[in-house]
Design a protein around this nucleic acid. Structure first.
Lengths: 238, 238
DNA sequence: TAGTGGTCTAGACCACCGA
DNA sequence: CGGTGGTCTAGACCACTAG
């Protein structure tokens, strides 16, 4: 474990436990450096993480303070900084998958462009309905290059593709570019998500890429509007 | 201008101009340090920015590479890392505002909680229709504490609240917590956004806070589903 | 093995803030 | 003014990757 990671974990724990009073700044960087026996650059890196998470803010010449924002949610909550994979996102609930389509095709021009492959390079096409506690939750259409992510089986589709990628193939996920939009529901949504014809859909279009920058997944996730909210924390630079 | 900011701007420009071939890594950090006459920590900070923007990825022991993801969009595109303010987001287009409601009230319990104020502390309540090139684009309902953001006038509402905050009040915006969801359109949406009764809405709920961590704005922005997409880049922290 | 990026140090100077 | 955080340096050692 990196030193800065260890420090940020410890300070995050303290903040959540109420160890530091919110009325005053937390100890200054110099004192924290002494306590944790590190240089100021390392402490800064540790605190940077908590600032990026929206837990702290800094004020030059004044100090470092705790931000408290209420965050109570019954809806499933996706944080844009989170790693990927529904199965890992809601660990305490039962996630099940129903395969609606699973085949190999040549990609359309649009899919090939997003995955940065040729149109004669085959892809998996996967459509799954994913449910949480047996409530339909999201309809996912996924395209993945067969040569990059080989060995997809129905068994894997019934559990977690991300675990297959990370554990079996031992690939590391680098991140994703996402677009979130509202959409009208179509007949597929209505059939599988059980929504009404005038229910809106929250669609997340995503290009996922490995830690080597290669796109491995192009997907469209269509969510019931009443069971999903996308959460994003943004911190201005400077 | 900070040195690392200047360097990241220059390298970003080079990437977008195709100065560096995408088939090979960009020059290693040591060479870049020589070229830009800086230390490795500074160069690392500059490159960190471009990695966070999803332009670069690094591979220990191998090099730093350019990620290319197509990004062509007719829709207006909000990047979650962007600073705030519609007027500043679409500079080349004409943004106009129509005031639908503007008064001072005591906040509801929900609004008071989000703004971290008491229910006897007055707030502005503002409802505006904002249009781009005379096309209705978003219906914004905004709550702001009057003592924190004083001096709001109709004239300001017709231009930009964010410019008032940053230029006149000389406050600095720290960031925002956002929730994005799909919603059914209501009669207000239909009247002002000109959408049909079965058109969905993309709603962005936002708590904006200053760089001192104090919430200054709680807002609901309701967007036409066919003219708005929310974009998010997320990078895994291994 | 050579070269890459990842982390960390011990200091330095500066910009900003409150008293 | 003293104390805070922001930036920057010139190194060091380590972990990982390719050939």
């Amino acid at each position: 474990m990196n030193k800065y990671k260890h420090i940020s974990d410890e300070i995050r724990k303290r903040i959540k436990e109420g160890y530091y009073p919110t009325s005053r700044p937390i100890p200054d960087e110099h004192s924290l450096c002494e306590e944790f026996a590190c240089s100021r650059m390392t402490m800064k890196k540790a605190l940077d993480i908590l600032v990026a998470e929206g837990l702290l803010y800094r004020k030059r010449g004044h100090g470092t303070f705790i931000i408290q924002v209420p965050n109570k949610d019954s809806e499933v909550n996706v944080i844009s900084e989170e790693s990927l994979g529904l199965s890992n996102l809601v660990k305490d609930k039962e996630v099940s998958s129903r395969i609606i389509a699973f085949d190999v095709q040549f990609p359309s021009a649009q899919v090939a462009e997003q995955l940065n492959i040729r149109t004669d390079s085959p892809i998996y096409r996967i459509i799954r309905l994913r449910s949480i506690n047996n409530e339909p939750y999201v309809l996912e259409k996924t395209f993945m290059p067969t040569n990059l992510i080989p060995g997809i089986t129905e068994e894997i589709l019934n559990s977690s593709i991300y675990n297959h990628i990370q554990n079996t193939l031992e690939l590391k996920i680098g991140g994703a570019h996402r677009k979130i939009r509202a959409s009208k529901s179509n007949s597929l949504d209505q059939e599988y998500l059980g929504c009404k014809s005038d229910d809106p859909i929250l669609e997340v279009e995503q290009v996922g890429f490995l830690n080597n920058g290669i796109p491995f997944e192009y997907s469209f996730s269509r969510h019931r509007y009443d069971r999903f909210v996308f959460t994003s924390v943004s911190i201005s630079k400077q």
